[in-house]
Structures are given as structure tokens and as C-alpha cells.
Design a protein around this nucleic acid. Structure first.
Length: 1040
RNA sequence: GGGCGCAUAGCUCAGUUGGUUAGAGCGCGUCCCUGAUAAGGACGAGGUCCCAGGUUCGAGUCCUGGUGCGCCCA
């Protein structure tokens, strides 16, 4: 006996039971243990930040990260799945800052880095339990107990090893980088952070003049004009820049005979009146290259290579003068262009962006506040030619709402720009899903990869393991804790900044201190393949089997993130890609196509959706969408509901049907005998086809394609196999046939559970658990994935059944058109088709049609012409290449063909048409023939099939129809009276003479159908009154 | 500003190497069926395949240029 199954299934509740079962029996662990000696399938889990609750994007990625390992496990691989946590970085620091009420880096330093870092450490765990709960509830099997955290000492030690590798290979260097900087927080921000808070502000816009050194060019009184909205950068000016292709003019101001140099295109804005100036000369920017000028301020007058005109294409004539003032410490282009010209930057601002003693005149003033004084000084010195204000949008610090400045920050870099081709080559070995993300998006990105800035001027992170001598001359890079201990004699077991910065040692008379920066947390996630296993300190040989990964999966937004950092480090360390297969998922948006927003509440709470429809439905909804191929998904709760109704409920109903009748019959799974029944063979063939399609799609990591064939299969199973086999289960007198029906449906359901298990782990487990016999594994997830050996595949049968389904569809359509209920038996249906492969199983096929359409006979024939006329079109696919332009003539000729002519061609005759005087020969293959039902007949056609329904009714047929109506009413009555399917009844009835006649004629049939033991006609019967095809009857039933 | 992608029915999406009636499911309307099914079936309405050019005998599909949206970068 199977456990009784209700068709009223509560999926979420059922899932909770399965979770409890997995937990109690340790099924996940068993699924690992039983593959312990098998080949490894290596999966790397990208670590999420632990600073918020999981959202749909995580659920999606988590589902993909669950399906593939489950599938591979069932295919016989050992798949270790360790959860990872990204513990370091700004998100967690921000939480800690809020918790401690610390506004910026100064406040953190004052409060103590140790206090701050320990707060960060304590807060990392804040959301872990919530994550574990939700991830587990989604059915994802992943090891939380043996997780890796980027703040673990082992992990951090491996980071050192990785860093030292880069160091030893000469790939680490220090340079400046222009970054948005908050003087209030005294910290640089990322571009991303800076982009989030633009405001419209008014700033000064001034034009200054820079005196040319070479008086031979335009005379003794000639100046370059340059425009700026940041006057405070002028004290640090070291060069001017012009566009080499831009035309510049030297114009004499006729009011004072001073000569100014500026872009021709900007002339009108400075000299609106044409009679106020005289153009002396026009030159290209490239002609001005190398010209010297007198510094505006004297502070850096002796600076090497400075105060000359440079060339660069970035200069535009959109505003200003077409000549750009360069302060390399305060602009990205400035920095780049000056560096290339051999000009070292000067930065006379302190950490709080106040001028230092290098600029004594403004020392102690905040840079922005110094604007006024600087402008006044320039004005007094006669160096200011124009002054106004400009309104523009400018980035502000999110936390303090003070304007950001751009300034040079010392940073550590990994050199990667010489590895572009190497990385692209390795990337070609990676299988991407979808393919274009790897080939185009990621490939292009690798193609112009820039050196990687890996340092952060922050506190909570892995430390750069470099100790620098106090004179800055020597550096020592540590690759392990042991190495540090050797140098310092200090024992350390925690590698965070507040510990390590206290480790100071002497070597050869010099004192060494650690460089203050911490590592970008992307460096840690990129080093995760090594660090999670504590490589190379732990089991370096075993590492060979666990690198690279067979599979990773993340969102499209990781193209420049994890996918990239894994690739960079894999390339440098081992000259290998770090992963072989990648599934890239798209963004999950709100139903309206907007981003999901907590503030707008434009999406349902994930936990509520799971608790309403179940995790299986949510998983399936997401996977059966293009979001698993990097496209966006507008998440619709209704879509989840739909998936449940389309797939999960029908599957459950098929199962519930089986168990109900198997229990009624006391059927038990037994020895397997090959069924001869056509439907059985067909559904087994379909099952194997499904297995094959799912396997192929999964081996290609195409999850959406793997799910698609389930839809069709479930449809075939429930609405064709079971529908057409129903009577075999509950009315069959042939025990062998009944046994084969049970055996087949049983086998199909068990196999379906196994094939579906990776995708919908709960419902399949629940069904499997009830169906399994003692000798089978206790969980479907401990089973092997089914093979598709081709044992049951029968392509001919698939095709024949498709024809039968078409015939039935056409027959139903005709019944509907002629208003003939299916309960009314009809004489028969004619099926005409030239495809006579049907003949093979014609008797069985006939019976399917007869039962489904309720007709007494099916006549198969080849001659369609009695039922339909033909018309033809050329087969453009075959004729197009042969005929080219002439195909239009051909089409005209073919369109005129008569039914008889087409019949002849179908019979094998060649068709010759005239094409501009040339005969052209065609065969039946060159024609596309459509069948058009003849007028006045009940005929319908589709493709090569034509059917004709015999619509005439006879008294006998009408009588039988009435009997069937009677049965139908009684079945409904049984149902409303709450009888069990196997209950026997007594019936008393009365009715019109017509009814009486029909009932007595079909008495045995009726009694069998409704399980009546007694069936009596009574003149005066109370009870339910029915209308049967216009006749009246009254019935009383009683359970025996 | 650059790279990549997406745009097909009211909605969610299929649509092979270009081939002549562009499909499915849901939703909607009408009708039917029902002793496995919170189901099922038939029929119907609903399309400028984002726009404009081009290549071709033939373009949803290929090319060029736009528009809108998204991701990443600057």
C-alpha cells in the first residue's frame, strides 16, 4: 500500500516536511558521502556581502547553483558545495560606522581602529541566520557549517601568498590614482559612490592668462588663455594642454595691444565684436607643443619639465578657451598627460583638503574656501581676464553632503595590461552561457583591461602584507604568517589592520612598518579558489583536483567583478582560467520592469511568495525564463502561480490518480514485464525522449532549455496517456493489461521524479518517497540520473501518435462545428492520408480514436480527393535556389494547378511547366500542397491529414447517447452524494418511455459503469430529477 | 561618450542554416466535457515582428543608420 494521497495538496507545507526529512536523515551529507570516491565536479561559490537580507537575485543565483550540482551529483560526480561570505569592505564598514556613530575616517582613528574593526567583525554575523534560513527554505543544498569567510585567518594567509606571488613576479607597483575624495570623511570614495549623489551647484568660472616665455613668437606681450571652474587647483598648475588638431589663433586686443592665444572656435565668446581684435596668426595645436610660459604662482617654479604646452586629443572646444590648465594632482586627464610628459604631480593639500605650507599664502584654508582669495590675488596681479559663475551638476559626498574633490591618491596596482591577449586566449577555453557574454562582453573587456587598483585607504579588510623601511627605500613582502614571525619575532593569529600595524621590526638597522592600506575585497573574492582551501599551506596536491572550477554561476553584473578577478589571478598564478563553465543570469526586476526598490515596495516579499506557492514553483518560474541566459526578468507573482498550475499541480494529480487506484486494486510494484500496449510503449518512449533532452540541455548548462520539455511531457502524460488509459485502471477485466498500465505509470512517475529532482527537489522527493520500494535509495536525490539508452525510443510510434492526436483534434473540431456532443456516439470517421506508416499499429490506433471521439468505426484510406480539393504552392526552399527570379512565374503556374493535376503529381508523375519558353520539370517534393475541405461535408484537414465525420444520427445511436447521458448524470450524483469510487449502489428510477427504452436496451452497460448491483424501474419514485437530451427522468441511489 | 544585450499578440515568451498562413501558454469571449485533476477540450477575437533604408526571387531572421530600455565602463 502507498500512503493515501490527497489531490488537495499544500505545496509549502509539503516542502517543510521534506526539509525536515532531509535534515533528520542528513540526506545532503549522504548524497556527498556516496560519491566520495568518484570524480570531483568542482563548484566555486561566489561570496555575497553579508550586509543585507537575500533578495530575488540571490534566490535566482542560488537556484542555479543548486540545480547544476544536484544534477552532476546524480550523474555520479562528487560535488562539494561550500558557502562563502564576503566579510570585508565598505558595506560592513558603513554598518559599523552607523552603529558606532562615527562620521569619517578621522573619527574612526580617534575612536581606535581596534574598536572599529572588532565592531565590524561582530556585525558580519548579523544576517547569517536569515540567509541560512532563506537559502535552505529554497531547497538549496550548500554547506553552511563548513563555509569560508574572507576574514578567517587561513583565508587571509592565503591572500598573502597570492599577493606575494604577484610581488615576486614583479606585478605589484605603486602609483597615483585620481579619485573622488571626501575631505569631510578624509577618505577617497569609489567612482560608483561618487556617481550616486550629484547636485546642481554654482561655481566660479574664471579665465586666466599665462605669459608666453618665447617673445619671438607673438611679441613680448602675448598670453595663453585658460579657463577653469576650480580656481583652487591653479596653485598646483604645472602645464597647459591643447588639442593637436584644433586650430588656435593669436589675436591682438585692439584696446590694449595685448596678444592672446586661444582656440579659433572659442574666439566669439571672448571677442563678441569683430572690430575689437585683429587675428595675427592661425596655428594647429601641434605647433604650440613645447612652448613655455611663466607660472601663475611661484610655489613650484623650479618643478622639473613643467610650465610648457602639451598636446592631447581629450581637449575639446565645447567650453572654455580650448586651452586646458593642468594640475596633475587634481584631474585624471591632467595626471595622465603630465605623467607621460615626465611631470611629477604636486599636491599642496593635507588630508582635510586644506592648503599646506607649500602654499603659504593660503595655508590652512580649505581648498574650496580659498577660491575667493586666489581669484583676488590673480586679479591684483593682472592675471585674471574674465570672471563669472557657472551652474553645473557636481558630485557630493553621500554621507556628509559636502562637495567631493578629485585628487591623486597613492595606490597599489597589479599590472595586467600586458596580459590582455593571454587572458583572452584563456577565456576562449571557457564555456559561457549565454555564449555572447564570454565572447563579446567579457572578451572585449579583457581586450582593454587596465592595471588593477587593489588598495583601499580603509580599515576592515585583508592587509597589504608589505613592510616598508622608514626611509622608504626598502620593502619586504610577507607570504605567510611564519615569514612575518621570522622577521618580527611576534606571534600573530589575526591578520587584521589593528593587529598588524603594531608589528614593527628592525632589519639591518632600519625600522620597518606595514604600509597602511588594506586590499580591495575584490582581490579576496578573486583569490577565493586558493584561499578557501588555505592553499598552499594545506594539501597542495589535492588543490590540483580542485582548480579550476568546473562550474560557477553569477549575475551579469559580475562581468567586471568576480568573473574578471578570478580570471586575472588564474592567469597570473597558473596561466589557467579559474573556471570552465559559467552560467550568467540577468537581473530580477519588479513586475513593472523597474528596479526592485525597498522604498517603492514594488515587489512581494520573497518569503511570502515562497510560503504561498512553495519554493519549487519559485525555482521553476525563474529557471523557465530567459533570466538564466543573462536577460532581465520582470518578476511577476502571477507567473509563479501559473507555473504551479501548469506543471506542479498536473504532476501531483497524475501521482494522486495513480496512488488512489493502485491502493484500491491493492497493486504493488513487482517484476517488470515489457508492455505490448501502444499507449504504454508511447509514454515510455516519450519519457526517454524527455530524459535525453534534459540531459543534453543540462550538459550544455542551458537550464531554460532543460525545463522546456517538461511542459510538453506533463501535457502528454496527463491529457493523453492517463486520459486515454483511465479505463484500464478502473474498469479493465484484463488483469495483464491492468498490471501493465500500473507498471508503466509507476515507472514513468518514478523516472519523472529523478529527471525533475534537480529542478524541483521537493515535489519529486515527496512523490518518490511514497512510490519507492525498500530496495531503492531513501531519497530521490540519492538516485542516479536516468539514462536514455534508447531502449524505449520508438520514433515511428511518436509520429503515429502525433497523427492520432491530430485526427482527434480535427474530429473534436468537427463535433463542435456541427453541435454534436461527444457523448452522442456517431457512426464513424474517415481518415485520409498519404502517410501510411500508420498501418503498422492500425488496430490499436483505431481504438484510441474511437474511444476519444466516441465513434463506432474509423476508416483509414489514402484517397483524399473525395473529401478535399488540393491547391499547391511552389516549395520555395527547394526551388528558390534553382529558379531565382523566375520563381515568380513558377508560382503563378503552380497556383493554377487543379486537384486532378496535383493528384497526378502526387501519384508520381513529373510536372512540366513553361518558364519563358523553357520547360521546367518538377516533382511532388517541389510542391507544397494544402487540402481544402469540400463544401457540404463534415471535413477538416491539417497538414497531410484529412478527416470526415459521419454526422447522421440513427435511432440506435440516439438511444445509446441517451444511455450515456444517463450514466453521466448518475456519476455526478454519486459524486455529490460523496460516494467513494469503489462504492456499490442500488438504483431506482423512472422516466419517459424514450428513456425507459434506452435504459433497458443498455442496462448492463449502465450498471457496469455506475457500479450498480440493483437497477429497478419504479413508477412512483421520489428523488433527483434530470433532463436527458430533452427527456425527463428521476433517480434515487443508495449505497449498498 | 564607448562596449554588450534586449524590443514578436493584452501579459510571459518560442521562432533552427533567410523560404511565402509568424507560433505556444496565460488572459478575454462563446460553447462543450468531467468519477484523477485548484482540471480538460473546441472555436473566436487579438500582430505595422520598434522605426527607416539596403541586400535578395523572397527578410521576424542578414547589413547600415536611428529610437526606446537594461547592464558594464568612461
Amino acid at each position: 500500500m502507498f500512503d493515501p494521497v490527497s489531490n488537495k495538496i499544500d505545496f509549502p507545507h509539503n516542502e517543510e516536511e521534506m526539509l525536515a526529512f532531509w535534515e533528520a536523515q542528513g540526506i545532503f551529507q549522504k548524497s556527498l558521502d556516496q560519491r566520495a570516491d568518484d570524480e570531483e565536479f568542482v563548484f566555486y561559490d561566489g561570496p555575497p556581502f553579508a550586509t543585507g537580507l537575500p533578495h530575488y537575485g540571490h534566490l535566482l543565483a542560488g537556484t542555479i547553483k543548486d540545480i547544476v550540482p544536484r544534477y552532476q551529483t546524480m550523474r555520479g560526480k562528487y560535488v562539494e558545495r561550500r558557502f562563502g561570505w564576503d566579510c570585508h569592505g565598505l558595506p560592513i564598514e558603513a554598518l559599523a560606522q552607523d552603529a558606532l556613530g562615527l562620521a569619517g575616517t578621522t573619527a574612526i582613528v580617534e575612536a581606535g581602529v581596534d574598536v572599529f574593526n572588532e565592531k565590524c567583525r561582530s556585525m558580519v554575523q548579523t544576517y547569517v541566520n536569515e540567509w541560512r534560513k532563506t537559502v535552505t527554505r529554497m531547497g538549496r543544498w550548500v554547506d553552511f557549517d563548513n563555509d569560508y569567510k574572507t576574514m578567517d585567518p587561513d583565508f587571509m594567509e592565503s591572500i598573502w601568498w597570492v599577493f606575494q606571488q604577484l610581488w615576486d613576479k614583479g606585478r605589484i607597483y605603486k602609483a597615483h590614482r585620481i579619485m573622488p575624495y571626501s575631505w569631510k570623511l578624509t577618505t577617497p570614495l569609489s567612482n560608483f559612490e561618487a556617481n550616486r549623489n550629484y547636485k546642481d551647484v554654482q561655481d566660479p568660472a574664471i579665465t586666466c592668462r599665462f605669459k608666453l616665455s618665447d617673445e619671438s613668437l607673438f611679441g613680448a606681450n602675448a598670453y595663453f588663455l585658460a579657463w577653469t571652474t576650480t580656481p583652487w587647483t591653479l596653485p598646483a598648475n604645472l602645464a597647459l594642454c591643447v588639442g593637436p588638431e584644433i586650430d588656435y589663433v593669436a589675436v591682438k586686443d585692439l584696446s590694449d595691444d595685448v596678444v592672446y592665444v586661444m582656440a579659433e572656435a572659442r574666439l566669439a565668446s571672448y571677442f563678441p565684436k569683430a572690430d575689437a581684435y585683429e587675428v595675427l596668426k592661425t596655428v594647429k595645436g601641434s605647433d604650440l607643443k613645447g612652448q613655455g610660459y611663466e607660472p601663475l604662482f611661484a610655489y613650484f617654479a623650479d618643478h622639473e619639465n613643467s610650465f610648457q604646452v602639451l598636446n592631447d586629443d581629450f581637449v575639446s572646444t565645447g567650453d572654455g578657451t580650448g586651452i586646458v590648465h593642468m594640475a596633475p594632482a587634481y584631474g585624471e586627464d591632467d595626471y595622465r598627460i603630465c605623467r607621460d610628459a615626465g611631470i611629477e604631480l604636486v599636491d599642496p593639500l593635507d588630508a582635510e583638503a586644506c592648503f599646506t605650507s607649500l602654499v603659504p599664502e593660503f595655508a590652512g584654508q580649505l581648498c574650496k574656501d580659498a577660491d575667493k582669495g586666489i581669484i583676488r590675488t590673480l586679479k591684483d596681479a593682472g592675471k585674471l581676464v574674465h570672471q563669472s559663475t557657472i551652474q553645473h551638476s557636481y558630485p557630493f559626498c553621500e554621507r556628509t553632503d559636502t562637495p567631493l574633490i578629485y585628487r591623486a591618491i597613492e595606490a597599489w596596482y597589479v599590472k595586467v595590461d600586458d596580459l590582455r591577449e593571454n587572458m583572452q586566449g584563456l577565456n576562449d577555453q571557457v564555456h559561457w552561457m549565454p555564449e555572447y557574454v564570454g565572447a563579446k562582453r567579457f572578451g572585449n573587456w579583457l581586450g582593454d583591461a587596465n592595471d588593477w587598483n587593489i588598495s583601499r585607504n580603509r580599515f576592515w579588510g585583508s592587509c597589504i602584507p608589505v613592510w616598508v623601511s622608514e626611509d622608504g627605500e626598502d620593502s619586504i613582502c610577507m607570504g605567510s604568517i611564519e615569514e612575518l614571525e621570522k622577521y618580527s619575532g611576534v606571534k600573530v593569529d589575526d591578520l587584521h589592520k589593528h593587529i598588524l600595524d603594531k608589528v614593527v621590526f628592525e632589519k639591518d638597522g632600519k625600522t620597518y612598518r606595514r604600509t597602511p592600506e588594506v586590499l580591495d575585497c575584490w582581490f579576496e573574492s578573486g583569490a577565493m579558489p586558493y584561499a578557501q582551501q588555505h592553499y598552499p599551506f594545506n594539501d597542495p596536491e589535492g588543490f590540483q583536483n580542485r582548480f579550476p572550477a568546473d562550474f560557477i554561476a553569477e549575475g551579469l553584473d559580475q562581468t567586471r567583478g568576480w568573473f574578471y578577478t578570478l580570471m586575472v589571478l588564474g592567469t597570473i598564478l597558473f596561466d589557467k582560467p579559474a573556471y570552465k563553465n559559467v552560467v550568467v543570469n540577468g537581473l530580477v526586476l519588479a513586475e513593472d520592469g523597474q528596479k526592485m526598490s525597498k522604498r517603492l515596495k514594488n515587489y512581494p516579499d520573497p518569503n511570502e511568495v515562497i510560503n504561498k506557492y512553495g519554493a519549487d514553483a519559485v525555482r521553476l518560474y525563474m529557471i523557465y525564463s530567459p533570466v538564466v541566459r543573462a536577460e532581465n526578468l520582470a518578476f511577476a507573482e502571477d507567473g509563479v502561480k501559473q507555473i504551479m498550475r501548469d506543471l506542479l499541480i498536473p504532476m501531483w494529480n497524475a501521482y494522486s490518480f495513480f496512488v488512489t487506484y493502485a491502493n484500491t486494486d491493492g497493486w504493488e510494484p513487482g517484476e517488470i514485464s515489457e508492455s505490448e500496449n501502444l499507449l504504454d510503449r508511447w509514454i515510455l518512449s516519450s519519457m526517454e525522449k524527455l530524459t535525453e533532452e534534459v540531459t543534453e540541455a543540462m550538459d550544455d548548462y542551458d537550464l531554460q532549455s532543460a525545463v522546456r520539455p517538461f511542459v510538453h511531457f506533463i501535457e502528454d502524460l496527463t491529457n493523453w496517456y492517463i486520459r486515454r488509459s483511465r479505463r484500464r485502471f478502473w474498469k479493465s477485466e484484463d488483469d495483464d493489461d491492468k498490471h501493465q498500465a500500473y507498471q508503466t505509470l509507476y515507472a514513468v512517475l518514478v523516472t519523472l521524479c529523478k529527471v525533475g529532482a534537480p529542478f524541483v527537489p521537493f515535489i519529486t522527493e515527496s512523490i518518490y518517497r511514497n512510490l519507492r520500494t525498500e530496495d531503492m535509495p531513501e531519497s530521490v536525490h540519492l538516485c542516479d540520473f536516468p539514462h536514455f539508452a534508447g531502449k524505449h525510443r520508438d520514433a515511428d510510434l511518436d509520429k503515429q501518435m502525433a497523427v492520432v492526436q491530430t485526427v482527434v483534434q480535427l474530429g473534436r473540431s468537427l463535433r463542435s462545428e456541427y453541435d454534436l456532443k461527444v457523448r452522442m456516439p456517431l457512426k464513424g470517421i474517415h481518415v485520409a492520408t498519404r502517410d501510411m506508416s500508420l498501418k503498422q499499429n492500425i488496430d490499436d490506433l483505431k481504438h484510441l480514436v474511437m474511444e476519444e471521439l466516441n465513434v463506432k468505426e474509423v476508416w483509414f484510406g489514402e484517397d483524399e480527393t473525395a473529401l478535399a480539393t488540393y491547391s499547391a504552392k511552389p516549395n520555395f526552399k527547394t526551388l528558390g535556389p534553382k529558379l531565382g527570379r523566375q520563381i515568380k512565374l513558377c508560382a503563378a503556374a503552380v497556383g493554377k494547378l487543379t486537384t486532378d493535376e496535383i493528384t497526378n503529381v502526387l501519384g508520381g508523375e513529373k510536372l512540366v511547366i513553361d518558364l519563358e519558353g523553357t520547360p521546367f520539370e518538377m516533382t511532388a517534393d517541389d510542391l507544397l500542397i494544402s487540402r481544402n475541405p469540400r463544401e457540404g461535408l463534415a471535413v477538416a484537414s491539417e497538414g497531410q491529414i484529412v478527416v470526415a465525420l459521419e454526422t447522421q444520427l440513427t435511432p440506435e445511436l440516439e438511444q445509446e447517447g441517451l444511455a450515456r447521458e444517463f450514466v453521466s448524470k448518475l456519476q455526478n450524483l454519486r459524486k455529490t452524494e460523496g460516494l467513494e469510487v469503489s462504492d456499490r449502489i442500488e438504483v431506482r428510477f423512472r422516466g419517459s418511455e424514450v428513456v425507459q427504452a434506452a435504459v433497458s436496451e443498455h442496462r448492463n452497460f449502465i450498471m457496469t459503469e455506475i457500479l450498480a448491483l440493483a437497477f429497478d424501474f419504479e413508477e412512483a419514485t421520489e428523488g433527483e430529477e434530470f433532463e436527458l437530451n430533452g427527456e425527463v427522468a428521476q433517480v434515487i441511489i443508495r449505497k449498498v
